[in-house]
Amino acid sequence: MTEEMKKYLHQLLMRVDGLYCILVTDRDGVPVIKVANEKTPELAMRPSFLSTFAMAADQGGKLGLGKHKTLICMYSTYQVVQVNRLPLVITLIASETANTGLLLALEPLVEPLLSDLRGAVGES
């Protein structure tokens, strides 16, 4: 099952110019599935970096603006888009010049994977 999923994610990775990595992690930043190319910054894939999203999502939900859905961080050389699908988190790491709208449009395409991935995380 993993191979087919990775193949599919790899196709999505190729679809957006400047996208380096697609990660689906649990709330602690442990990857359930990931596809990345050689340009991906290693630091951005560490659980210590990825797990901050779940915390931010928990706190952001208290602002009275509804549930926290997406976090977009623009750095000088990279951009990181994280989507709240708790207990799963979708993380997209791309170059700072990549089209953020296209990255956001990938979320519904990753969606069909999530039910199976959620099953793997939920039973642990």
Partner: peptide
């Protein structure tokens, strides 16, 4: 703990039924 979890998730995914591309 991290490595254990990664391994656990990989096992769970492998044991799952065949996934078809949407």
């Amino acid at each position: 703990e991290y490595h254990e979890r990664v391994k656990h998730y990989a096992q769970k995914l492998q044991s799952g039924s065949r996934w078809t591309v949407p």
